[in-house]
Simulated assay, not measured.
Amino acid sequence: MTQEVRGVVAPGRNERVRIETVVIPDPGPGEAVVRVQACGVCHTDLHYKQGGISDAFPFLLGHEAAGVVEEVGPGVEEVAPGDFVVLNWRAVCGRCRACRRGRPWYCFDTHNATQKMTLADGTPLSPALGIGAFAEKTLVAAGQCTKVDAAAPPQVAGLLGCGVMAGIGAALNTGNVSRGDSVAVIGCGGVGDAAIAGARLAGAGRIIAVDIDARKLETAVRVGATHTVNSGESDPVEAVRELTGGFGADVVIEAVGRPETYRQAFYARDLAGTVVLVGVPTPEMTLELPLLDVFGRGGALKSSWYGDCLPSRDFPMLIDLYLQGRLDLESFVTETIELDDIEKAFQRMHDGDVLRSVVLL
């Protein structure tokens, strides 16, 4: 039997979001209905609202979420009703060439629910990142549900669903930061700060936060940065080198996604060091580097997809670290809000006033 819930819908490009009635179908084979308890307000949702990802309006926004499985469809074995889960947007297929090679975090055929949620008049909705969690309930593929310890508050657990996992994974999984490494993170928003927290978890010896916003640099120190560089006041490449004995950092994580900051990351790393791109560029951006420098500096230039995470492996581990007091997820939550406050939260996020606004349902 279908259900009707309240949800936040982006009706068209750059239009204000609206609270609409959303129709949730019964879960079909391989699907699950989740009662959403909390969902973070992420830049990706703003990009959907602005039409920067696709034109498949109307969108049901929200994806960085945690909640409780309410109902599952036929054939579902991963989760059961009553499980506390974090939602992920890369449900691995288990069959593609990446999965068959034992690298499911690179899965090339991730999937979402087959059925569509709709507006009350039957208009199909496009759920953000296949999730659509700015709603009291949502329909997802069961593989998008990762069971974690229910002792974790939903407002912090849900952050693993996107930004925090992307940043931590960029440091731990993609950058392979290890004990004693020097790490520089360029761009200290939610993802960059999570990369700093990941570097701290790995035991990095020197963690350098780089940003043009003094407020963001203060927050970066709270989550684990040992040094800061205001790149609006000094050359970040020279500053990082000065802080690393003149050599550059072992790992530089670029969390902005712009050609100019990528070049900074490239030249701020040590010889044979690693650059990790986790900031998401826009389609028109291009990059030019001297090929001799690419060869001569050696090392690795990597892109990090969702922190190269495997949700079934990484989400429970990070929740356990949080419960042990070793990962401060609370620091990422600036405020908790209601569904009706999302338009204002987008503006605060755009203005750099918050690290994360989290909707509580």
Rank of each mutant, 00 (worst) to 15 (best):
E4P: 00
E4M: 05
R6P: 01
V9Y: 02
R16N: 09
V17G: 07
V17F: 03
I19Q: 03
P29Y: 05
E31N: 06
V33Q: 06
R35K: 13
V36R: 00
T44A: 15
H47C: 08
K49S: 15
Q50S: 12
G51A: 08
G51R: 03
P58A: 10
G62D: 06
H63P: 01
H63T: 13
A65R: 02
A65M: 09
A66P: 08
A66H: 05
V68W: 02
V76R: 01
E77K: 08
E77M: 01
E77F: 02
P81S: 13
F84H: 14
F84L: 13
V86Y: 06
V86K: 06
N88Q: 11
N88Y: 03
A91G: 11
R97C: 06
A98L: 04
R103Q: 14
W105M: 09
Y106L: 15
C107S: 09
H111F: 13
H111G: 07
N112M: 06
A113E: 08
Q115A: 13
Q115L: 13
L119E: 08
D121Y: 10
P124M: 11
A128K: 01
L139Y: 05
L139E: 03
A141Y: 06
C145D: 15
D149T: 10
P153T: 04
V156R: 01
L159G: 00
L160K: 07
V164S: 10
V164F: 07
V164I: 14
A166H: 03
A171D: 07
N173M: 08
N173H: 09
T174V: 14
N176D: 14
V177F: 09
S182R: 04
V185D: 00
G190A: 11
A194S: 14
R200P: 00
A202P: 03
G205F: 05
V210S: 01
I212W: 00
A214R: 10
T219P: 00
T219H: 15
R222F: 02
A225T: 05
T228C: 07
T228H: 05
S231H: 02
E233P: 03
S234Y: 05
P236F: 04
A239Q: 09
V240C: 12
R241S: 05
R241I: 05
E242S: 15
E242F: 02
T244M: 04
G245R: 08
V252K: 00
I253D: 02
A255H: 03
E260Q: 14
E260P: 01
Y267F: 12
A272V: 12
G273V: 11
V276A: 04
G279K: 01
P283S: 13
P283Q: 11
E284M: 10
M285H: 02
E288W: 05
L289M: 09
L291S: 14
L291R: 11
L291Q: 13
V294L: 15
F295Q: 15
R297A: 15
G298F: 10
L301I: 13
K302S: 14
W305A: 15
Y306Q: 10
L310G: 00
R313D: 10
Q324L: 15
T336I: 03
E338K: 15
E338T: 15
D341P: 00
K344M: 05
K344V: 09
K344A: 14
F346T: 04
G352I: 12
D353E: 15
D353C: 07
V354L: 06
L355I: 15
L360A: 12
